[in-house]
């Protein structure tokens, strides 16, 4: 199920909530000045699961999920998937990306459908993480930045495993957009559209931006 924050659902079970970013974070952006904006933010999470002592207690029944923010939805400041849970684990983990095996296979359906704009047409493979927008620091045309992070082959693999420790049955996972934008040097890294070292570096940065709060 996919809910925007405006449609917050109350459930009597404990929840795993997948936030994109915290309201408080987006309300005081560090890097995005009034002229700057985000227009696209989409990424795949795969194999979401909760473990205790490395034993899997719960596994998302859907293998790959595309977290997608359309332009208008940024006003909502967060998007969330709610999973009613009744387990108490010590770690929540997922893969940021579709994974090497899925990438190496052919065309998928549902969230993996190439009409979602997350498949390179000139070069095969899924884009694991896509962020586009405008930053006054970007020297490219119209100050745009296009970060399409993909690549699944050994040396340039952008699939990143995220594992976060949890103490609470209610799990809120957030993506720290501030940290991500703060650490990118848009002067040098504004246009990435193929598997490359910069894509691997930024996928590691994205990995480090997820946290449980």
């Amino acid at each position: 199920m996919f809910f925007y924050s405006s449609l917050t659902c109350a459930t009597d079970k404990t929840e795993l909530v997948f936030f994109l970013f915290k309201d408080s974070v987006i309300s005081t952006p560090i890097r995005l000045s009034s002229d700057d904006s985000l227009s696209v933010l989409r990424f795949y999470i795969s194999d979401l699961q909760i473990t205790k002592n490395k034993k899997v207690l719960w596994k998302d029944s859907v293998r790959h999920r595309l977290i997608d923010f359309e332009k208008g939805s940024f006003n909502q400041k967060s998007a969330r998937i709610l999973f009613p849970l009744n387990v108490l684990g010590d770690h929540v983990s997922f893969l940021l990306g579709v994974g090497e095996k899925t990438a190496a296979r052919g065309i998928g359906e549902g969230d993996l459908d190439p009409i979602k704009g997350m498949y390179w047409t000139w070069q095969s493979g899924y884009i694991n993480f896509k962020m586009e927008g405008v930053s006054s620091n970007s020297p490219s045309r119209k100050n745009k930045f296009l970060l399409h992070l993909g690549g699944y082959k050994k040396t340039l693999n952008t699939n990143q495993k995220v594992s976060l420790s949890i103490r609470n049955p209610d799990i809120n996972i957030s993506f720290d957009l501030n940290k991500f934008l703060y650490e990118i040097n848009f002067k040098e890294r504004h246009t990435i559209m193929s598997p490359c070292q910069a894509a691997v570096d930024l996928s590691l940065l994205a990995k480090a931006c997820f946290y449980v709060h």
């Binding site: 190496a104 052919g106 065309i107 190439p114 009409i115 498949y119 047409t121 000139w122 070069q123 095969s124």
Partner: peptide, 24 residues
């Protein structure tokens, strides 16, 4: 550039000098 035959058609379909269209 294309690693799987099912993905191949996406390349000419989207190329502005070939079919200039999109899968959508």
């Amino acid at each position: 550039a294309i690693h799987h035959i099912e993905a191949q058609a996406l390349a000419p379909l989207h190329d502005q000098r070939e079919m200039g269209s999109s899968i959508n």
